[in-house]
Write a protein that binds this DNA or RNA. Structure first.
Lengths: 240, 240
DNA sequence: TATATTTACCTAACAGTGTTAGACAGTACT
DNA sequence: AGTACTGTCTAACACTGTTAGGTAAATATA
């Protein structure tokens, strides 16, 4: 009465192998994130990771060829996670200032909910670690998206800049990162919106608004503002 | 006919000892800074330091009781060095905007000229390291000075803030740190004033100026949107 | 001056790290 | 059945911060 055919719905050996491999890789990544969260990003220990996935340390090398490679996989996971955070920014908002507010808030929330990924991706805590080409490319795609938000706002006449788009974007990024970095360094456990730096998001938005909202007469900097350099700022070119 | 008395101008044994001790401590600090600059702040190795001062590693423990203590001494040296940078800011400037410009520029220059001290003091690169009470106190005195600059500018009616002094100060710090942090992460070798983030200092100053200079009708924060100028065409109320 | 103490260094060792080499069982393919 | 491959292991190397204990010289004391 048993089915005579081998049920083809069950996985083939190769598929089983690949699935096991992926599960193991995932488990290693998860364990590594735990360790980083507990002991600090730069204090990640392969032997500790191995202990948690119930292996000996050298066995990890079957999945990641070096500690740097593991960091790189984590970097990529961080970028991907942040992208999913950032994709929810524009949803439901119409005003540029709403979006800017949410943008900064989301960045800080990402840092707070995934401090180990934030540090790995946006600070530089690991001495020897430099992300691979592939990972950097993912990171650059991220930047490109940021400029689009600004470009759209300009197209909608919501803001009027006295400097190139990419510079405006970098100014926003600097403020966003500065606030978040200080928040995480000083009061990493306080929720977004509270704490010495966490509460400054509205004030930061107001600052940009005062300078960029049309109808305001924007003051110039003390030194001649060079807003005609770096041609082709509105294009897709991002890093220089 | 030589002087019978031991010439008292030469150092006493105790003085000699103390001088040697201090010289040794200084040499260790200097070697440690070199190593940090070459290999990264978190990659500091006591054995490498010992090698450079021509000692065995355990001998360092006669001068600093632990690696953390060495980090702490370096932290203090960093704060002191930065203070001497910052004390030169106000010299020769009268306008608040000049001062603000120099302030940011000096912060970035400090980071560039002493990257190892900058990272140790203003980023958080060493997993287990927390500065001692005494060092933190020096660090706090630093902050207090920053607020004075703002308070003076307000007293002189040079700026008009729509938020408390300390919050304004933190906003400036966030921008300053954000710019510098990005500059150091991306183009640490480019001089201050150039590079993707390094050149944004005037733009950043202009941003604050547009918002805080009296005579400008500054937009208010999202919580009290009572900006009564320039019809609310695009500027919908930025609620939270 | 002779003795005792303190100082400044040393070597040896422990437990931890990332990483490589080589072995061995079990699975899969021919 | 025999061969190749996979996944995991142990042993080992060179490195790390740190502790314990020893030794020779410099200093202080009698």
């Amino acid at each position: 009465m048993e089915p005579v055919d081998k049920p083809t719905s069950v996985l083939s050996p190769q598929e089983r192998r690949q699935r096991n491999r992926e599960e193991m890789q995932g488990a290693i990544l998860e364990a590594a994130r735990q360790v980083m969260r507990e002991q600090g990003v730069a204090a990640l220990s392969l032997r500790e990771v191995a202990r948690r996935v119930k292996m000996q340390a050298p066995s990890l090398y079957a999945y990641y060829p070096s500690k740097t490679a593991l960091y790189d996989a984590l970097f990529l996971e961080g970028i991907r996670t942040y992208v999913s955070f950032r994709n929810s920014i524009t949803a439901g908002h119409t005003s540029f200032w709403d979006i800017l507010h949410t943008w900064v808030e989301t960045y800080m929330r990402f840092a707070q909910e995934h401090p180990e990924l934030y540090q790995l991706c946006f600070e530089r805590p690991v001495p020897g670690f430099v992300p691979s080409e592939a990972s950097m490319e993912a990171s650059h795609r991220l930047l490109a998206g940021s400029e689009e938000i600004l470009a759209e706002a300009i197209a909608n006449r919501e803001i009027r800049l006295d400097l190139p788009n990419n510079q405006a974007r970098d100014l926003v990024i600097a403020m966003m990162h500065g606030l978040t970095s200080q928040h995480m360094a000083n009061e990493p456990n306080l929720p977004v919106g509270s704490g010495r730096y966490g509460r400054l998001i509205p004030a930061a938005v107001a600052l940009f608004r005062a300078a960029w909202e049309p109808g305001q007469t924007a003051a110039q900097g003390p030194h001649s503002p060079n807003h005609q350099d770096s041609g082709g700022s509105a294009g897709k070119e991002v890093g220089d």
